[in-house]
Design a protein around this nucleic acid. Sequence first.
DNA 1: GTCTATAAGGAGATAGAC
DNA 2: GTCTATCTCCTTATAGAC
Lengths: 203, 203
Amino acid sequence: MARMSVTQRRALLVEAAIAVMSRDGVAHTTTRAVVAEAGMQIGVFHYCFRSKEELILEVMETISRRMFAAVADVFSSSTDPAEIIHGALRAYWGDIRANPLQHLLNRELTQHALRQPGEEAAAVAQYAGYADGIEAFLVEIARIGGCTWRTPVDELARFTLATIEGVTIQWLVSRDEQMSQRLLDHLAAHLCADAELEVAAEQ
Amino acid sequence: MARMSVTQRRALLVEAAIAVMSRDGVAHTTTRAVVAEAGMQIGVFHYCFRSKEELILEVMETISRRMFAAVADVFSSSTDPAEIIHGALRAYWGDIRANPLQHLLNRELTQHALRQPGEEAAAVAQYAGYADGIEAFLVEIARIGGCTWRTPVDELARFTLATIEGVTIQWLVSRDEQMSQRLLDHLAAHLCADAELEVAAEQ
DNA sequence: GTCTATAAGGAGATAGAC
DNA sequence: GTCTATCTCCTTATAGAC
């Protein structure tokens, strides 16, 4: 095989791992399958990664980073809180529809980390990232829309995260398109009802 | 070992499997570990179960059945919707606190089924059971409390299921007691706000 | 850096004595 | 029905030639 920097190989192996793990699940993914997917030889693996576990952790970080990119450009669309909220949920939903297996994988990775002694921190970091991301999102909505949240924003963010994740798994199991849409609309309405228009001028 | 009916052995093996799988996770559970936990010999396994997969499916059904028992006696307490709702969520939360690993296991079982070709139906049945259970619960609350739900009850039930499950996984990851309590209170308030007192007398 | 060969250790399932 | 011994397969990880 052509020469290639270890860094580049690592990146290719992470991509291959995401592909294989999405397709077959974490449990059924072997290092052999990953290197084969990347078109490399089995011996390559262990001078790119210390262990299979190190690869899994890197997959976890990579996927988390990408999750946000899927909804990042939603602010450009509007300054109306209701529209931004609906836009964000639609964007998230589009990502679910486009990559259902990747979202299933994401759940598996969380649980894998929780079961792996010493890796609980990876799961904690993953969730803290999502919660903080949504929280920042809500803060930004309030700023743009000139409103405040009745509920403490950390609580509202985690409530939103919880519901979104629950809706996701329900769809992954049932594939009931219409119900999932209704549930996300229900969540959007709940959020909109929590927003309180600020009194226009102070001072 | 003493003679014992296959039926009884199956029951003991299911209990042992729940113990081992809760402790170590589905991925790390071997048939050897299960029979050892049950104090049996390895050879026993395959004339009690056709395969490891058959055992896992039976574990799944057993756990689902028990989940409801944990909140079943909540109606005796009150006829006030708000109190019943809070009571039910408290009961659920108590079960989570008492058996966190079993709830983690439950998630793993869902995903295992989704990844196992031909077993998706087990996951679907699991979720349909939870959704229908919560729906019946909401209907009963409305009947007892003399109120109706503004939101269609199938939607409200699935929204509740989604949020509960999201809160559960957040706690399993973060173990943030106080936040989880706030999130469940938030959900309870949301449900109470959806209840609409019926006009006392018709006709 | 790259690749082949292999070490070392389980896994699920079964055969066959009792 | 019960239990021991074992078959067969597949895993991660490493040694060592090139």
